[in-house]
Each structure stands twice: as structure tokens, then as C-alpha cells.
Design a protein around this nucleic acid. Structure first.
Lengths: 151, 151
DNA sequence: ACTATATATTTTGATTATCAAAATATTTGT
DNA sequence: ACAAATATTTTGATAATCAAAATATATAGT
């Protein structure tokens, strides 16, 4: 029984490390070798559709707005993002993806999908279902640990 | 079909983020609030038993030895690690855990085990097996992507 | 309408983790 | 004994991050 826990833990740790490394590597090899994983995650948080405010993006990424300001500055300079002041409330800054930003978003998304597909290719329908159920449970448990008030 | 891939991907991304946050939080709340996750990972790489050389640790963590030198300096100052020159080959530096380092290692290990246990508590035996199989497959696939020569 | 307070963002000054390349110390091969 | 190889540290630089101060704008109370 204990061995099973240990094996699952070790697998999770290894998978975790490999995913970071593969993601890092795939960005550095790809068309967008001028951005980091952190920057890809900022691009993801901005999202394909419309624009988001600095506060929204910072909240989603769980970083301070100061950190985000410099991140956005750099991504604008590199041509992935654009900034505009809200006409309604001039304190608010709206951030959106440029064409280049959208392309980077889509390519990164495809990388993720390809990884999941590769893994599930030789799974049976039943295995897929159980994996899905297990992941949903894992996710739910983690949310409860992270924010017990909500459980 | 596509939806299933998307859901699994999204679950993995969420789980991934939550694990970092919970780990970070649990360290900062705990007895060892003076060390970071990165530092816990260095402590893990040194290991409970005997000692390891700088090269071995740097290779395991996939960081340069320069980075490791400063990390080890700090962990020695904080009382988690100790350094000693090899008597056999005086170029080699051996690093090992102090009592405090071992305690930090064990507490972090327990945190991991508790997380896995919490997740598996309400899984059936069959679900556990499928999860294990799926994770083994995922891990194998990732290793192949990461290092295609070995596949 | 004025003024104080609240809100959204940026700037400033600092820290940590990281790397590549140069420097140092030691061992090994001829 | 000396050149080459090896193990590690030092140096100088960059990226990501934070907290707190500063700035700009909006809102609420009188």
C-alpha cells in the first residue's frame, strides 16, 4: 500500500519536472525563441479574445501588478502584446494580443494538445475515462487543500 | 474526442499550478519558513544518506555548478547543509545534510505523501491501478519526447 | 463644486535564481 | 615534470519577483 503511494508520488514529481523541461525546450527550439515560459504564460493569461486589464491578468497569474508591468513592457517591445487606456475609466489599462501574440498562443496550445494526444494514443476508452475521473478528483482535492473555506 | 483531450490538458495545467502553490504555502507556514522551494529541492537532491559531490547534485537538478555553489553557500549558512573536501581527490567537494537538513527533508517528504494519500483516499482499488498505469505511460512518453534517442 | 478617500497602475529599490565564461586548485597521462 | 583534463568557485550579467512609494484618475460626502 505504502509502495503505491510512493510510486505515484515519484511519478508525479518526475512528470512534473519533465513537462517543464519539454515546454522550455520546445519554446527555445521553436519559432518564438525570443520568449520564455513565463512570458508564454503571460500571453496565455491575456487570452485570444478581446482584452484584459492589468488587475485581471495579475490576479490570474498570482503575481503583483508591478511584476506584470515590467513583463508587459517587455512583451510589447517584442511585439506580442499591446496596451490601451480604457476610454470609460482612464485609470484602467487594457492589454491584448497582437497577431504575433495570437500565433504564439496557438502554437503553445497545440504543443500542449500534441503532448496529451501522444500520451493517450495507446489508451483504451475505459482507461481514458478512469484517468479523467482520477484527475478530476485530484484537482478537486487540491483546490480543497488550497482553499479549505470553499469545501 | 477533442473535448476529452482539452479537459485532460486543462486539468493537468490546473493541477500543476495548484501543486506549486500548495507546496510553496506549506513551506512558508511550516517550521522551515526560512527556505524556498528551490532550496528544498536542493536538500532533496543531496539526499538523506551519506554525501554527494557538487557535480552529482548539479547534474540531478539540471543547474550549473556556479548556481549550485551559491545555493549551497546559503544553505550552509542557514544550517541545512555541510561541505567537506574529499580526502581521496582534493578537487572534489562532498555535500551532506545536517540534522536540521534531514528534518526538513523528512517533513517535506511527508507533505508529499499526505497529498498523495488525501487524493487516493476515496479511490477504488481499480481506479488506483488505472491511475498508476496511466501515470507510468505518461512518464514514459514524456521521457521519450525529452530524449528521443533512448526510445 | 471641493476635498478626501478609494482605486488602478507604474516606478523604485531590493532579492533570488539563474547562466556563461574566467579563474583556481588538483589530478592524471606521458 | 609538465601539459592536459577535471572539479569547483568566482565574476559579471540577466530575468522574475516583491513591497512600498509615487502617480493618475474616479467617487463619495459635505
Amino acid at each position: 500500500m505504502k509502495d503505491k503511494f510512493v510510486e505515484i508520488n515519484d511519478l508525479l514529481v518526475e512528470i512534473y519536472d519533465d513537462v517543464i523541461r519539454i515546454e522550455e525546450y520546445s519554446i527555445k527550439q521553436g519559432v518564438f525563441s525570443d520568449i520564455s515560459i513565463t512570458e508564454i504564460h503571460t500571453i496565455e493569461a491575456v487570452g485570444l479574445y478581446g482584452s484584459k486589464t492589468m488587475s485581471e491578468i495579475a490576479a490570474q497569474l498570482e503575481i503583483t501588478m508591478g511584476t506584470l508591468t515590467t513583463a508587459v513592457d517587455k512583451l510589447i517591445k517584442k511585439g506580442y502584446l499591446e496596451r490601451s487606456r480604457s476610454e470609460v475609466d482612464r485609470r484602467i489599462v487594457n492589454v491584448s494580443l497582437t497577431k504575433r501574440g495570437k500565433l504564439a498562443y496557438r502554437i503553445h496550445e497545440k504543443f500542449h494538445m500534441d503532448m496529451v494526444k501522444a500520451v493517450m494514443e495507446d489508451m483504451t476508452e475505459a482507461e481514458e475515462e478512469v484517468l479523467l475521473t482520477a484527475l478530476r478528483k485530484l484537482n478537486k482535492h487540491l483546490k480543497e487543500i488550497y482553499n479549505p473555506a470553499k469545501s
